[in-house]
């Protein structure tokens, strides 16, 4: 009995290999818009290690998520690396995206830093908090407030772009600041301490690979390859960090010995974790999306945004 099932499995495998290679020849490479962020770099690592051959996947490097979304809109890219809120932003602009991969999860990378004499969030009531004009910053602050039984209305929010965070803090213009690396380390050096960080809100701030929903069917095979190549590269990173550091240092623009430091505060979900997160029965991502929408940054009603399935696990190996 046993050998027979194995046999069928082999047959099936054989069939799959044959059919996948058969489809491949016809297709043009899938185009992924991305920008430099530690969590996204496994895609490039995968290409460097030939897990993602250039004839199958080409990367379009942009300066920011906004440009990524722009490329998607103009049909110059098929997929993009984005944060969950950026996916929602794109959706609110009528660009239907589906998340097919969670690339990293912030577990402490995003931090709420307060002045030394402020011990708890309650003490920040009515005080000024600086943060980026992004959903992530607001979401973290909203979650922190929720944990402390407060709301965003309890604070004076001051939008400050990330490149100005450290200077702003040094000038003492805010009582607290929502920031992330590398600005967060600089801020802490100028005096301050973390009173809340993303490790306290598990599986909330996530970076994802999102695909234009209308292209999913056509690119199905490529997407399978893309995702499995990502995981191969992620495995390489975890098992041979030394080699990976040398390969990634160029793009991340740090010496190879500092590459690993960039991953502090980032959880790298593997295949199983991804299966769990993207399972249709798991409401986690939808709930986070709802939380983000309730921040009221996008004008589109929640039902419209979440009426279509936000994510899919069909490309996970």
């Amino acid at each position: 009995m046993k050998p027979l099932t194995h046999l069928t499995q082999y047959l099936l495998l054989l069939f799959l290999i044959v059919s996948v290679t058969a489809c491949e020849g016809e297709k043009t490479p899938i185009r992924v818009a991305t920008h430099v962020w530690p969590g996204y770099e496994f895609l490039h690592l995968g290409q460097a290690l030939a897990y993602l051959p250039q004839q199958n996947v080409t990367f379009i490097d942009t300066g920011s998520a906004t440009q990524c979304i722009e490329r998607l809109k103009q049909g110059q890219a098929d997929a993009a690396t984005l944060t969950l809120d950026e996916v929602l932003l794109a959706r609110s602009q009528g660009l239907d995206l589906t998340i097919i991969l969670v690339m990293d999860i912030s577990v402490g990378a995003d931090q709420l830093i307060a002045r030394k004499d402020i011990a708890s969030l309650q003490q920040l009531k009515g005080k000024t908090i600086a943060l980026e004009q992004s959903a992530v910053g607001r979401l973290l602050l909203a979650k922190a407030s929720e944990a402390a039984g407060m709301t965003l209305q309890d604070f004076k929010l001051l939008p400050v772009t990330i490149d100005q965070h450290a200077e702003f803090w040094r000038q003492g213009q805010a009582d607290a600041i929502v920031s992330y690396e590398p600005a967060a380390s600089q801020i802490l050096r100028h005096g301050g301490h973390v009173i809340f960080d993303s490790s306290q809100v598990p599986e909330t701030i996530v970076d994802v690979l999102a695909v234009r929903t209308d292209l999913i069917e056509d690119h199905s095979a490529m997407l399978h390859q893309l995702v499995s190549g990502f995981f191969k590269a992620q495995k390489h990173f975890l098992t041979n960090p030394q080699d990976a550091s040398y390969r990634m240092s160029d793009r991340l623009d740090v010496p190879s010995r500092d590459v690993m430091n960039l991953y502090q505060g980032l959880e790298l979900p593997g295949i199983e974790h991804n299966k769990k997160l993207l399972a249709a029965s798991n409401p986690q991502l939808t709930e986070v999306a709802r939380d983000i929408l309730q921040l009221g940054l996008f004008p589109v009603p929640e039902q419209d945004m979440l009426s279509k399935q936000l994510y899919s696990d069909r490309f996970l190996p």
Partner: peptide, 12 residues
């Protein structure tokens, strides 16, 4: 590998 000082053809 910009940061690696030797000629190399393989993984490290």
């Amino acid at each position: 590998l910009s940061d690696y000082p030797f000629l190399i053809s393989t993984r490290l």
